[in-house]
Design a binder for these strands. Structure first.
Lengths: 163, 163
DNA sequence: ATAATTTTGGTCAGTATAAGTCAAGGATAT
DNA sequence: ATATCCTTGACTTATACTGACCAAAATTAT
């Protein structure tokens, strides 16, 4: 209902997004200090924008270097074989998913060449690591572990879907 | 707004990299003084480039000799077994690793085609997810988060090596 | 032969620059 | 009201580059 609120963060986000569009390559290099000056804010505001808007979960990679000739590079990954199918699958994951179900899902995705064997391996290791930590270090209940597994899986799948 | 200018270091790096490409052997001999003259800098700048860009963790070896007819030889390591290298890199991760360090490592691995952009993205999502959970749900101390990050990263890299 | 000299490269500490982190407080939405 | 999102600034860390001084290998002089 409310009119589009334009926070600084949003404005900077749109600016960077536009730069990305203009650059054919899908990546753009920035100077944190210059950006901050342009938008009249402290430099760390830029970090906030990057962390909250150009996160890997959203299909972006950020590289940077400090010191002399420092820079921040924002890369938008685009995958040609990315389908809305993947988004659908993220829906399939739902709120909670068991280890068994997730494994079945990943096998399925690999069989349909949506993800590569290596990618599946990485995902399984990540899920399993979270499961182990939740179980033996943080004493998370089984159901809550299913919730967390769903969260992580969705993050990964949507990151691959965006582009 | 000025775009990041490329540093002297980067220019010299590219020059050496090109020499390496031209030489089929994967190695090239240089004169420190000549290089410094060519790029209008002090000789020790060359050492800086070698240390920061052609280090062993980047897959290079550097040999040199002082005195008359002295030289600097840059050798590009070629792993006949790419997996072997990934194991080596798991060692590089060490016991603890910061978010910054891990990102740098992943950029490096991708640049060297050890992992693909998609694989890097998945790994970053997984690391970030663990970080977030550790910080805001389980109240894990910063150092312990560095330990956990190293654990997860090593698990993933070694799984890729053994896969 | 040996010592002096010359020709290379190495190291380190200092300076300047630029990005990252964190926590506290303010603004906004629910 | 409260939870989430946004914004700020003090403090920390990383990188680039220079110059003064050090070390080693070859050449030349004695």
């Amino acid at each position: 209902m409310s009119l589009p609120s334009s926070s600084l963060t949003q404005i900077i986000e749109e600016y960077i997004a536009q730069l990305l569009e203009e650059n054919e390559v899908g990546e753009v290099s920035l100077r944190r200090k210059d950006l901050a000056e342009r938008f009249g804010c402290v430099p760390s505001q830029i970090n906030y924008v990057l962390r909250s808007r150009f996160a890997p979960e959203n299909g972006f990679l950020v590289e940077s270097q400090r010191g002399g000739h420092g820079y921040i590079k924002v890369i938008q990954l685009t995958f040609n074989n990315c389908d809305e199918e993947v988004v659908h699958l993220a829906d399939l994951v739902g709120n909670a998913i068991t280890e068994q179900e997730s494994r079945k899902l990943l096998v399925n995705l690999q069989n349909r060449d949506v993800i590569s064997p290596r990618e599946r391996l990485i995902i399984e290791v990540a899920l399993r690591s979270q499961e182990e930590n939740g179980r033996s270090i943080f004493d998370v209940s089984p159901y809550r572990r299913d919730l967390m597994r769903a969260e992580l899986l969705k993050k990964i799948l949507t990151s691959l879907a965006l582009g």
